[in-house]
Nucleic acid binder design. Structure first.
Lengths: 225, 225
DNA sequence: ATTATTTTGTGATATGCATCACATTGTATA
DNA sequence: TATACAATGTGATGCATATCACAAAATAAT
């Protein structure tokens, strides 16, 4: 647990907007922590008075569904986490767990809110991010419920490739159980679909290593369900 | 199309927070319109530079899914609509359609943003609402995908009863097709489940009139899927 | 290294729900 | 009031995918 994060902007854009005053204030009032894969960063149901800024790494946002854990989405640094908690009743409404090595800043709500009030550009940034999240949520939900399994798996793979790793080759950041909870299926179906994609020549599987060999096809699968 | 909305607070809470100055500014810069059931208030894909404040009535938020229109949720006045649009590229990312008679204020983004900057309490309100929406979205999505049809229909009915109409007796605000698009099923299944609930003595159906005769059961159905 | 434990692959079977098809009722229009 | 059109009720059938039941790998623990 260090407290030496003078050079830890919340994100490059936001930092450049902070007045010297508020930036100092911020730097003096948060901690930087490292987590390793699998560590819990935010725990649903726990009391908390911190906003979390994910500096580096990957994390999953997940919550208890009626029958099993639901992974809402994979998030990549830089991003804020736990805003709903801190503005609400200070009880975490979802969990966040590290999916890779991760660096995180915990910022006290009070401080965060002060800066939000002091700095229009910053608060505008935040409102913007929240709006984007809402939209993304709408579309994600519509897609997941309307598409068939193949379509949803294709979407997940495309997101990994295009949004998370920026590469056609990557190692799956989630286990099959997790993938199932992300894509709303059973673990068995994940396995089957993945080998199916492999046989179809769309991807090439070597353990958890994936290479998308035919992105066009994958995009087609995404559209046809 | 009137412009005489001096007495149109965006909502009672927000209005009380506005300084006289910003409130005047606001009143002079928005319109009040009435819509009737079925009228489109916001059209996905259209250019717009207004934030919409729903003063009275009910509306549905919906968007084009990959295979059919998806109703995201039913919203009740007072609430803001179209925030993501105005903060983004000014293209509506979802549609909003009146489900009852509705009164609406269109507020120019510029004005809205000015007030957002001037008034901390107000912007705090907005951030709070956006956070709530995000959470609601997460839970809604987890529920919809994990529960079976009976559970989802039960949820919809309970929401109408508890959140929208505040009564055990109400007339369904949506057609069966719409209900199907809200609850992620086919129209036929909506019909079947509804009559099933009736036969089970959980509700009593007379056309579009519904009375929830056994709320306990309905809550149980909601939990058991 | 060896054993224990978790993760993954794959068949067989069961089931919830979509889809198709059409009758029926309700509601707008001429 | 008659006619067209939209919304609803209900059966029969098919299909996508969950579930069950193991085997096989891979990973972790001893």
């Amino acid at each position: 647990m260090q407290n030496d994060c003078k050079n830890c902007p919340f994100n490059s854009k936001a930092a450049s907007m902070l007045s010297d005053c508020s930036f100092d204030q911020l730097s003096e009032n948060h901690l930087v922590l490292k987590f390793k894969k699998g560590d819990s960063i935010i725990k649903q149901g726990m009391y908390s008075t911190n906003v979390v800024f994910l500096r580096t790494g990957l994390a999953k946002i997940h919550l208890a569904g009626p029958y099993h854990e639901q992974i809402v989405k994979l998030v990549k640094a830089p991003t804020y986490l736990g805003l709903p908690t801190t503005f609400g009743d200070k009880i975490n409404q979802y969990s966040v767990t590290a999916v890779s090595e991760v660096e995180v800043c915990f910022i006290d709500v009070e401080v965060f809110q002060t800066i939000l009030n002091e700095n229009h550009a910053f608060s505008h940034e935040i409102v913007l991010e929240l709006c984007r999240n809402e939209l993304e949520s709408f579309h994600r939900c519509a897609n997941r419920t309307q598409k068939l399994l193949r379509g949803n798996m294709a979407d997940a793979l495309l997101e990994f490739s295009d949004k998370i790793f920026m590469s056609d080759t990557f190692t799956l950041p989630l286990s099959q159980v997790e993938l199932a909870n992300l894509v709303d299926t059973s673990r068995e179906s994940v396995s089957r679909i993945l080998t199916e994609f492999d046989k179809d020549g769309i991807i090439q599987l070597k353990g958890k290593e994936i290479q998308i060999t035919n992105k066009k096809s994958l995009q087609l699968v995404s559209q046809n369900g």
